[in-house]
Design a protein around this nucleic acid. Structure first.
Lengths: 199, 199
DNA sequence: CCGTTGTTTCTGTCTCTACAGAAATAACGG
DNA sequence: CCGTTATTTCTGTAGAGACAGAAACAACGG
């Protein structure tokens, strides 16, 4: 009878609100709502939850939860937690935000950036044997490829910076440029060679 | 009769390929395919194009092109180019990639990050008056909020770094941490106050 | 002031994805 | 080896967004 009560689960208002927000915030990024909501729930949960707990709490189909969990595990944002005397799987989220973000960034790189770069390289390869392409287009493609490669290198390197250093770096914000200005000022193009020596 | 000929327009193979790739690459990000394709076309075009040129070249409906153009203008990725003796609007794309990316980043911040941060602040406000929220959840929310604020500050500052400096910075990659290590090493938490003095 | 040309808004259709529920599979205990 | 419980895969459906085409609107020239 009372089938309409979707979210009657005992969540405190603020938590529920966060889950809702996080849910459709995920929608704007590439993640679907269920996945984001489940992640939000686990992130705020004191204890590991079973798939069924989650399904009930969020009013989602059990199968949906199963698939979403699989995806979250793929991103390494949640992990299994074995519980004594319970056959069911329990799940908990990564709670260190910086770690979490790193994992997401890593995943996006592998699934989106790398393939995109690859496609672009293929384009360039074709462009070079393309007799009818305009010089302008060719130049633009080259610039684009160079840019993507540059960003790719940067991304990779940043992902490998130890977390504390990364945090410091981010918190410094634009101040880095101030500290680096003696270097920056040594001249534009030339610096590039120097900077890449270690790559 | 020959209605099936979608992409019969005289595009060189490499260009066409790029437009196609760029198109569904846009799909993975928030942009729809038409918009991304039009952008790609204009990016590679030697001369400004009219809306109709675009519609014909890409095989899109005129109305679709119109809307897409509007969106691209909203992102400031393309701009009108008046042409003598032609009443129609001609459009050209921003060709400086760094400028282009900055514009996109700016747009995404305004449309996605800022609202998200706002929503999160609202959550926190509610959480603080929430009697039944668990201490753990409250703590996690706080951490999340702090993180988002930090990233937001960083993002804002980075968008205001002059382009040459930004390019240098990116090209340095993780090398910044090496140069900064004497500072980084001065200790963790304390640095944050110092680093933010200028914000 | 009317016709022509260009642009925008509106509306219906179609595709694609998220999702629920059912069916199938696997793991474990007795 | 069978029954029970947990999980995954499969299938149909509902909703959202992308898009085409039509209709409305605006601007300009003669």
């Amino acid at each position: 009878m009372t089938e309409i009560t979707n979210n009657s689960s005992n969540l405190s208002p603020a938590v529920e609100r966060f889950i809702l927000h996080w849910g459709d915030l995920g929608g704007q990024w590439g993640v679907n709502r269920s996945v984001a909501q489940i992640h939000a729930l686990l992130y705020l949960s004191e204890h590991p939850q079973t798939a069924e707990d989650i399904a009930e709490t969020l009013g989602l189909a059990r199968s949906n939860v199963s698939n979403s969990i699989k995806e979250l595990m793929g991103w390494k944002l949640i992990h299994r937690v074995p519980v004594m005397g319970d056959r069911r799987d329990h799940f908990a989220a990564e709670t260190d935000i910086w770690e979490m973000v790193t994992r997401i960034a890593q995943g996006r790189k592998e699934r989106e950036i790398d393939p995109a770069a690859e496609a672009l390289r293929a384009c360039m390869a074709e462009a070079e044997t393309d007799t009818q392409i305009s010089p302008v287009a060719l130049k633009r493609l080259q610039e684009m490829l160079e840019f993507v490669e540059t960003i790719n290198r940067w991304y990779t390197q940043m992902l490998n910076v130890p977390k504390p250093a990364l945090v410091t770096l981010i918190k410094m914000g634009s101040k880095v440029t101030t500290l680096l200005s003696p270097i920056t000022r040594r001249g534009g193009k030339k610096d590039r060679e120097t900077a890449n020596q270690d790559a």
